[in-house]
Amino acid sequence: MSLETLDSNGSHIASAISDEVVIELNQVNKWFGEFHVLKDIDLTVYKGERIVICGPSGSGKSTLIRCINRLEEHQQGDIVVNGVTMDTNLKNIDAIRREVGMVFQSFNLFPHLTVLENCTLAPIWVKNMPKAEAEQVAMTLLERVKIPEQALKYPGQLSGGQQQRVAIARSLAMNPNVMLFDEPTSALDPEMISEVLDVMVGLAESGMTMLVVTHEMGFAKRVADRVIFMDQGEIVEQNTPGEFFTNPKSDRTKLFLSQILAH
């Protein structure tokens, strides 16, 4: 569906990958009770790289990115983010979370705070930034996601697309060097998907390292440096978007692509 819309907007935006490793996953395994949800995941993400992760539901793609900021705990293997190894040490976890922003499918804005307060809370309370400075940063970011006029409203007064853009601004307020997107457009009405994708494209153009779980294949074609396809807890295939969409190698990938691109 949005494959067409985004393709007409422009071609693939230039990538800005450096050889500095930001995230490294080494033989990561995770179980939910008896259920083996991630199996021997190896993944290296370089600074500035934009990765789109897709796959059928239940394939472990959300769990994978949630392990990167410890919203889920992995049981085997190593996860290293910005040179910090993820372990049970709360200091390490906090250090990683300060540098990793996350955007959720259901926005998860704080309903009791205004849009501006949502964006200033973490800088003030985690980074000890003075309130005035935090508000200045937040307003700049709200302008970047094109909703500065909503700053004093509460999340409940905004549309879904506006809420998700606030959520992106809120994450950016911590000035992270990696952004994780967990199906950011899946809960949105069709008319609002493009306004969120536009913001994400802008973020990609600015050189942000991004891991995006999404079914928006148009976005993947336009933005991704690498597309990862997961099924049943494994990385089945990963390739550049050009190769991935035109020349998928595994039969599972072919089936998936034929199903999601059929309509």
Binding site: L71, L90, M102
Partner: peptide
Amino acid sequence: EAAQAMGLN
């Protein structure tokens, strides 16, 4: 999750 992801203890 949102609070944790932002680094709040």
